[in-house]
Amino acid sequence: MKARAFSYARPTTVVEALQTFAASGDDASYIAGGQSLVPALALRLQAPQVLIDIAHIPELRGIALQDGWLRIGALTRHCETLSDPLIARHAPLFHDAAPYVAHPAIRNKGTLGGSIALADPASEFPAMALAMGVELEIANLSGSRRVPADEYFIDLFQTAIEPGELLTAIHVPVVQPSHRWAFDELARRRGDYAIVGSGILADMRDELVAQIRLVLFGVGNTPVRAKRAEDALRGRQLDQSAIVAAQAALSDDLAPPDDEHTPAAMRIHLARVLLGRLLGRIAEVA
C-alpha cells in the first residue's frame, strides 16, 4: 500500500501554485491537509505526476469579517473550525459539525477548504456550506471568482472547481439574530461517516419559518437541499403537523444510494427521523 512515485512542489503563493499545476500538464494534485488524498494515493486510486503542497501559502489562511460575510481561508484546519470564536459566532454550523468530523488527529491536519473542494457527499463541511448558503472563492490564472454553494456541488466528487483551479476561501453570510440552526448526524461509531446527517438554518420571524435551508448528507451524490421539505415549512409555524409534512416531503427530495450495507429505504427513514428531531430542536428554541 505505497503510493506511486510523484514529484513534489511547495509553492508559496496562489499564483505559483496555479502555474505549477499548469506546467504539469494538468497531471497534478493539490495537497493541503491530505487527510483524504493520502489514502487515495496509498491505494493507488489516484496517481498524479506532481503533488503541489499548498499548505505554505499565507493567502490561504486567516479568518476575518468582511461586510457581513465571514471569510474563512481554505487552509483553516478542522480543529480551528471548532475553536475559533468568529466561526462559532458567525458560521455556527461549521462549529457545531466540527466535533463530528472524523477524529481529533484528523481534525488537526484536515482543512475546511480541502474538505469542501473534495465534496465528499457523506462529509459534514460541504453539507454545512450548502446549509449556510456560503460562497466559494475559486482562483485560476485569470483571477478569482465566487460561486454560491447552490451552484457549486455538481455531482459525485464534482464541483464548480475546474481542473487546475484552487479553492482559496469560504465566504459565509453571518447568521442573524432571527436565525436558528441545528446539526446532527447518525453514524455507527463516533467519527465515522454518517449514514445520514443534516444541517438546518432557519430564519424565524414572528414564530413563522420565513426562510429555511435544509440540507442532508450521506443520501446522494452531493449534499442535498431538501427543497420540497423546505417548501412544506416555509411560512408555517414549526408545529408537529408542519414537521410531519416536511418529513413526508423528503421522499421526493431524496434518491439515496441503495447498497448492501445500507438500503435506500433505511436512509430515507433515518433522514425523516433526523429531520424531525432537528426541527423539534429548532422549534424548542424558536
Partner: peptide, 19 residues
C-alpha cells in the same frame, strides 16, 4: 506530534514535514 499537534504520520509525506 507535528508542531505540537497530534497527527497521523501515515497520512502525510515526509516532504510535507520539512521545516
Amino acid at each position: 506530534l507535528l508542531d505540537g499537534r497530534v497527527v497521523h504520520s501515515c497520512l502525510m509525506f515526509a516532504a510535507q514535514a520539512s521545516g
